[in-house]
Amino acid sequence: GEDLPLPPGWSVDWTMRGRKYYIDHNTNTTHWSHPLESGPSSG
């Protein structure tokens, strides 16, 4: 998808195989999909 801006506290990194993933430092979790690309989340 597009390179959307990341929310505060997020960063992007790549695996050893070159796969892009996103790090949420607020909750110390990692995600394969961009936080703003996922569907609407409630709460």
Rank of each mutant, 00 (worst) to 15 (best):
G9M: 03
S42W: 12
D13P: 01
I23H: 05
G39R: 14
R19H: 14
T15A: 03
P8Y: 08
H34K: 03
S38M: 13
G9E: 01
E2M: 10
T30M: 13
W14A: 06
G43A: 12
Y22D: 00
H31Q: 08
D3L: 09
N26K: 07
Y22R: 00
S42I: 12
S38A: 13
R17L: 14
L4T: 10
H34N: 05
G1R: 11
H25N: 08
I23E: 01
G39F: 13
L6R: 07
G39S: 12
Y22G: 01
P40V: 12
T27H: 04
N26L: 07
E2P: 11
D13K: 14
S41W: 08
H34S: 05
T30N: 08
N28H: 10
T27E: 02
P40A: 12
G18L: 05
R19E: 14
M16D: 15
Y21E: 00
H25A: 07
H31N: 03
D13G: 15
V12I: 12
R19L: 09
D24E: 02
P8K: 08
N28P: 02
N26I: 08
D3V: 10
D24Y: 02
S33N: 14
W14R: 09
P35W: 03
E2A: 11
E2H: 11
R17W: 15
T30A: 10
G43T: 12
S38T: 11
R19M: 09
N28I: 02
S42Q: 13
M16S: 15
P40F: 13
E2S: 11
G9P: 01
G39H: 12
R17N: 15
W14H: 09
G9Q: 02
H31K: 04
Y22W: 08
W14F: 14
M16P: 15
P35A: 02
L6F: 02
M16L: 13
S42F: 13
S11Q: 06
V12L: 07
G18W: 06
P5E: 13
P7R: 00
T30P: 04
W32I: 03
I23L: 06
G39P: 14
S11D: 07
N28V: 03
E2L: 10
P40D: 12
R19Y: 11
P5N: 09
E2N: 11
D3M: 09
Y21S: 01
P8W: 07
H34A: 05
N26H: 07
I23M: 05
S11G: 06
G9R: 02
W10G: 00
G9L: 01
P8I: 07
P8M: 08
P40E: 10
P7D: 01
S33P: 02
T30Y: 15
L36Y: 09
R17M: 14
G18I: 04
S11V: 07
P40C: 15
G39Y: 10
P8A: 10
W10F: 01
E2I: 11
S11I: 05
T27I: 00
P35V: 02
W10N: 00
S38W: 11
W32A: 03
G9A: 01
D13C: 15
T29F: 03
H25R: 06
W14M: 08
G43R: 10
P35G: 02
D24P: 01
N28D: 07
E37L: 14
V12Y: 10
S38L: 12
T29E: 06
N26D: 04
G9T: 00
I23A: 00
R19P: 00
S11M: 06
W32N: 03
Y21M: 06
R19V: 13
M16A: 15
P40Y: 12
H31W: 11
T30L: 14
S33F: 14
L6T: 01
Y21F: 12
G18V: 03
T27S: 07
L6H: 01
G9N: 07
W32M: 05
R19F: 12
H25T: 07
T29D: 03
G43F: 13
H34R: 06
G1F: 11
D13R: 15
L36N: 08
M16G: 12
Y22P: 00
S41R: 09
S38G: 11
Y21D: 01
S41F: 08
E2Q: 10
R17Y: 15
I23Q: 03
Y21R: 05
N26G: 05
W14L: 07
G1A: 12
E2Y: 10
N26V: 07
T27G: 02
S41L: 13
W10L: 01
G18D: 02
G43P: 12
P5C: 00
L36H: 07
E37G: 12
I23C: 03
